[in-house]
Design a protein around this nucleic acid. Structure first.
Length: 641
DNA sequence: CTTCTCACG
DNA sequence: ACGTACGTGAGAAGT
């Protein structure tokens, strides 16, 4: 038995590491004692890295601990150690894990205790930390990591175990990338820190729970978030099939395109199209006028500016308003192909498990508004104007992709929260909200331009934007935008009233707002105007999460693939896909404080990208299901026109 | 590490 | 009184 002593918050604590069968007997006694006491035991794992589903992934240790003692089981060394860990995981009635989805999926895949068995008895301290204060360190919060939370709530002198291990990696000739997998398991600092993490985690949970209760955050919310987290973990485990041959061809094509245009750019002295300083210098040298600067004072040369110089509109079509600048054209084309190739193509190609599936991390409770995020790779952010990337993501064999989104959910949530009667009436009557707004402001003869400005004003209200930004965003003259905002406030007085009330309450409440779900959202003191946006964005997120749980209760959990803010991506067997989409849409549709939240169910072919194809010919040429069902492709083209 | 850019809702 | 665009993840370049 390896034995370490350490001090945590003034108490002496112990970390024990069994080396053989005899040592495991002591571990088993300790586990029985924990069961008898009925307390919560903290669990953690050390692994070869973060890519849980990669073919070379290894589980190295499983740790158990309470406030004063930790056990580090080196499960990597023998079947017996792994069995002891499994036995304890199954026997212990109540566990806490910091950032539970990670360890739950590791244990599900590499220790053979299913998510469905372990999940329901786990409390995730990260959820409580987020409910207390969702802000990252950079945003003025404590952060959501075990280290900063332990320093704040357990022991300000607790060692930075990550930092300490990085130093040890270097001492053993390893890096941050290789260290987790290759550090000698019997390294003292590795074992000690593995043990300390569960002792800290065990002490952290009760403090955070108390803090959350003290603030008055809804108790139901923690339970809600745990159920959402477990459902998202199931989606992460399922992953999504990738068309590997397609993605290889795609990467090749994009790399070719990127280098072709990079070559064009090099003729103007730009050796690297991503080097903004080079690009701006070359453009100025060609006699172009640049007007905008970045926050640090450099010339701004982003996509919008380059598209203008290249005489291209938002759809990359010639505007014929000037002579296209060939360098600007080459730079944007090369940058886009390069980004799509590396961020999406390569990420999909190189992130697969042995079955050719991608398992993105589905972070169910992430943003400071509680919005979800998806990472590695970020499937919520794939290009939507072009189907080429999404085409790589596929339903399972014999299945079709289903996508159900809410119609204008943030505007509807705002109308409901603000109790804006005119807007609520328009929604209940099934009117197109932006048409309705334009008509109220400009009369029945409103133009497309009016609709665009009115829509922009609506977004401005949701985001807290002003006339100047809106004018820049829509290209409409400032005076016109100012008039439109004034008119908007006249026709929808409830929105402005609600926004002012929310800001008043926020100032009176220590710069925080509350959502209907009982969540507290801290604001930046110098950005109180964002109060409305925070409540609206967060509530729309809670709506989607409630819908996910409703779908689970209705028996659709195994069909779900991804949440995308106001949309659920799912799959269904070919023969019943249309019906499944309708049913999912029905379950998701709900009434929110008297405002209907309608859904729009769509069924694609085999690939996610097929939902983004506009022409029947494109569908039949690029999607196996539509190739076999050309009449459905024609119907889909008509529906999308 | 920070800055800039760019993809999404 | 006025005005403020919101939230993410990721790669490349440069310090």
């Amino acid at each position: 038995m390896r034995n370490f002593r350490h001090r945590v918050a003034g108490d002496e604590v112990s970390v024990q590491v069994p080396e053989d069968s005899r040592d495991l007997d002591a571990f088993r006694l300790w586990v029985h004692d924990q069961v008898a006491r009925g307390g919560i035991v903290a669990v953690d794992t050390e692994t070869s890295g973060l890519d849980t589903f990669s073919p070379t992934y290894r589980l190295r240790t499983v740790q158990f601990g309470n406030a004063v003692a930790a056990w580090v089981l080196p499960v990597e060394i023998s079947r017996e150690m792994l069995e002891a860990a499994r036995w304890a995981l199954r026997l212990l009635p109540s566990l806490t894990i910091h950032n539970a989805p990670f360890d739950l999926l590791v244990i599900d895949r590499h220790a053979g205790v299913p998510l469905e068995e372990l999940g329901p008895k786990v409390t995730d301290s990260r959820i409580y930390a987020h409910l207390r204060d969702p802000r990252q360190q950079q945003e003025g919060g404590i952060g959501l990591g075990l280290k900063p939370l332990s320093a704040a709530f357990v022991d300000c002198n607790s060692p930075d175990t990550q930092e300490g291990l990085t130093a040890e990696f270097h001492a053993q000739g390893l890096t941050k990338a290789t260290g987790w997998g290759r550090i000698n398991l019997w390294t003292d600092v590795y074992l000690l820190y593995a043990g300390l993490d569960v002792i800290l985690g065990s002490r952290l949970l009760p403090v955070l729970r108390h803090e959350v209760a003290k603030l008055g955050v809804s108790r139901r919310l923690a339970d809600f978030e745990h159920r959402v987290m477990l459902l998202c973990a199931r989606m992460e485990r399922r992953g999504m099939r990738v068309d590997v041959d397609y993605v290889r061809r795609l990467v090749g094509r994009l790399e070719e395109e990127a280098s072709l245009h990079a070559k064009r750019a090099s003729k103007y002295g730009v050796t690297s199209v991503n080097a903004t300083a080079q690009v701006s210098a070359a453009l100025l040298g060609m006699g172009e006028q640049l007007t905008e600067r970045t926050p640090s004072g450099a010339w701004k040369v982003d996509k919008a500016i380059l598209l203008d110089l290249a005489d291209l509109d938002g759809q990359w079509q010639p505007r014929e308003t000037r002579t296209p600048n060939p360098l600007a054209d080459a730079v944007i084309r090369s940058k886009r192909a390069g980004k799509w190739g590396t961020s999406y193509g390569v990420a999909l190609r190189d992130g697969l498990d042995v079955n050719g599936r991608i398992h993105c991390k589905v972070n169910s409770l992430q943003a400071r508004t509680a919005r979800m995020s998806i990472s590695s790779p970020p499937l919520q952010q794939l290009p939507s104007g072009d189907w080429a990337i999404r085409r790589a993501l596929m339903a399972d064999a014999g299945h079709r992709i289903v996508s159900v989104d809410y119609s204008a959910v943030e505007m509807r949530v705002l109308a409901a929260l603000a109790d804006e009667t005119t807007m609520k009436r328009a929604i209940s009557e099934g009117r197109d909200l932006h048409d309705f707004t334009a008509e109220l402001i400009w009369g029945p003869d409103f133009t497309k331009h009016h609709r665009k400005v009115g829509k922009g004003v609506g977004f401005g209200k949701v985001y807290g934007g002003g006339a100047l930004t809106l004018s820049r965003q829509t290209g409409a003259p400032l005076a016109e935008v100012k008039n439109a905002i004034a008119a908007y406030d006249r026709v929808y007085p409830g929105i402005k009233r609600y926004s002012r009330q929310l800001q008043r309450e926020a100032r009176a409440d220590g710069y925080a707002v509350w959502t209907p779900s009982g969540r507290r959202l801290p604001l930046d003191r110098d950005r109180v105007y964002s109060a409305t946006n925070y409540v609206v964005q967060s509530t729309a997120r809670d709506v989607l999460c409630q819908a996910l749980l409703d779908l689970q209760d209705a028996g659709w959990a195994d069909h779900l693939l991804l949440p995308v803010h106001d949309e659920v991506v799912a799959q269904a067997p070919e023969s019943e896909a249309e019906e499944v989409a309708r049913e999912i849409g029905k379950v998701m549709a709900m009434d929110f404080i008297g405002v209907p939240l309608d859904t729009d169910p769509e069924v694609g072919g085999r690939s996610w990208g097929s939902l983004y194809m506009k022409k029947a010919a494109t569908m039949t040429e690029n999607d196996a299901w539509y190739a076999a069902n050309p009449e459905a492709a024609r119907a889909a083209e008509l529906a999308r026109a």
